[in-house]
Design a binder for these strands. Structure first.
Length: 265
DNA sequence: ATGGTCGGAAGCCGA
């Protein structure tokens, strides 16, 4: 069967219900992984997702900040959430589909402004978070694992993942220390960067554009912060990966757009 | 070099 999984940082799920319907019309995902839902689980807009056909859910929301959710048309087995860096701050949810594919949805800390872990606690937290993820996946590594890791990883690793490599070398999201940390995470389970299988690394590819731009499309100062990764056991199953760039131009857009990976499982 | 805009909360903080 075909399996489509979308990751989307919504920046408030309650404000993106029209966008969610548009996403379903465009990509028809079986599973949607949301970040920055910014809502407690008891206030999650469950009815709206029921109406769209996503009746299975794993919620890990907190008031006002962060928050992740997995909503699915397919049953979600062994659902759960984990705390990272000792904080219950709504950054991870996981579940396994009946086909055996395990989905992990992450919202990695943004990291604040100064790319210096000595002076900026948020940046130190980001690096610790990526290191914890790395150790966790390395400890679970097995050749037959069919895992999917998606989310807002808040790092744009390639030169072509940002509008200007040189301009962003000292900007949090593209600094060498973060890119190296993300590289270690990728090596932790030999993860395959699905979007870069279908869009060559020479080609620019973004999933986020700042709200502060006068004209996001004209300036096109984007970054690829949102990722879909699969383990080697799923390499032969990959059939597509697509960034829904047009979503940035929707009414009341998130600053991130959905990214969808398609697998034949 | 700077400030630009969102969202959620509550009279700023995080992105």
């Amino acid at each position: 069967m075909e399996l489509r999984i979308t990751t989307w940082n919504v920046n408030s799920v309650r404000l993106r219900l029209d966008g969610a319907a548009a996403l379903v019309a465009e990509h028809a995902p079986h599973v949607i992984c949301l970040q920055e839902t910014k809502v407690r689980d008891d206030a999650f807009p469950a009815a709206a997702f029921d109406a769209l056909g996503y009746r299975h859910r794993v919620l890990n929301g907190i008031k006002a900040y962060n928050g992740v959710a997995i909503v699915s048309r397919l049953p979600l087995n062994h659902p759960g959430t984990l705390e990272w860096c000792g904080r219950a701050d709504g950054r991870h949810a996981f579940a396994t589909l009946e086909c055996g594919v395990e989905i992990n949805n992450f919202y990695v800390p943004s990291g604040g402004d100064a790319p210096d872990p000595e002076t900026n606690d948020k940046f130190a937290h980001k690096l610790r978070f990526l290191a914890e993820m790395t150790n966790w996946f390395a400890a679970r590594k097995a050749p037959l694992n069919r895992l999917v890791l998606v989310g807002d990883l808040n790092v744009a690793p390639l030169d072509t993942d940002v509008w200007s490599h040189t301009a962003l070398l000292k900007v949090v999201s593209h600094t060498p220390v973060e890119v190296a940390a993300l590289g270690r995470l990728r090596a932790s389970h030999d993860w395959i960067d699905a979007a870069r299988v279908f869009t060559p690394p020479e080609e620019r590819l973004y999933s986020w554009w700042s709200y502060r731009a006068r004209d996001w499309e004209a300036s096109d100062r984007g970054r690829r912060l949102d990722h879909v990764w699969v383990t080697p056991a799923l390499a032969d199953s990959l059939t597509a990966a697509e960034v829904l760039r047009s979503a940035r131009g929707w009414q009341a857009p998130s600053d991130h757009v959905p990214v969808t990976v398609t697998l034949e499982v």
